[in-house]
Amino acid sequence: MKSVLKFFARLYPRSWRQRYGVEFEALLEDLRPAPRDTFDIVFGALKMRIVTWAFAKLAITMITLGTLVTLTFAFVFGPTHYVSSAVIVVSATNPLHAFYRAAQTTLSRSTLTASINRFGLYPSQRARLPLEDVIGIMRTNIVTRPFSDGRGFEIAFDYPDRFLAQKVCAELAGHMIETNLSGDGGALMQLLDPATLPQRPLYPKRPLIATEGALAGLILALLLRFAVTRSNRSAHAEFKP
């Protein structure tokens, strides 16, 4: 235990250790250590660093830490979103009607259930949620956008696995075209752009997250410096010799 305390005592700034290191080590040898002493030493060392470091050094350290921590959390714990999209053109007297009819059929319960089962989508959600809820989630991950001139539309699917995102998007686009062919609308739908294989996730966005982390680090550095300065000023500030 004492060797652990001595190890953490190295966290103190070098200048502090040069002045107090020997006697501090003697104290650690004398005392009967308690588990909370480890935290006490680590906290004391960090506080001493904040006090002794120049603000520029403190800010750079906190910015680096903030960036690393937010990026780690975003990539380890946050969901990844890949979006695959396809473009379909419509030739019909009433293309919007054809689009809505195809979209309605494609987003139906039976179509989405078939896709979920075929590709094994949303395994963790399926383990804890009823199928209706999983279908609801899938619907929120599908976007269909008709073009302003009504001559075509884009269909996109958002999923954590980029290959599955592409496969499902391709299937949904194919289903829309087939639905239209089998119907009696008389519209002609053609695949203009096949489902893309997304190269980069839509989220997490590394530059944005890194910027947010850096900003949080800078704010933390300012707050720490302010808190320590205020704490030092208030201690004994009452007495004017």
Binding site: A26, L31, D40
Partner: peptide
């Protein structure tokens, strides 16, 4: 010295200062 202060403070104030807090 540091350790004597820790013991003394514990005795008269009933508070055990950790080594980091004391220094």
């Amino acid at each position: 010295h540091g350790y004597a202060m820790m013991q003394d403070i514990q005795q008269f104030a009933g508070t055990r200062l950790g080594p980091g807090t004391l220094y």
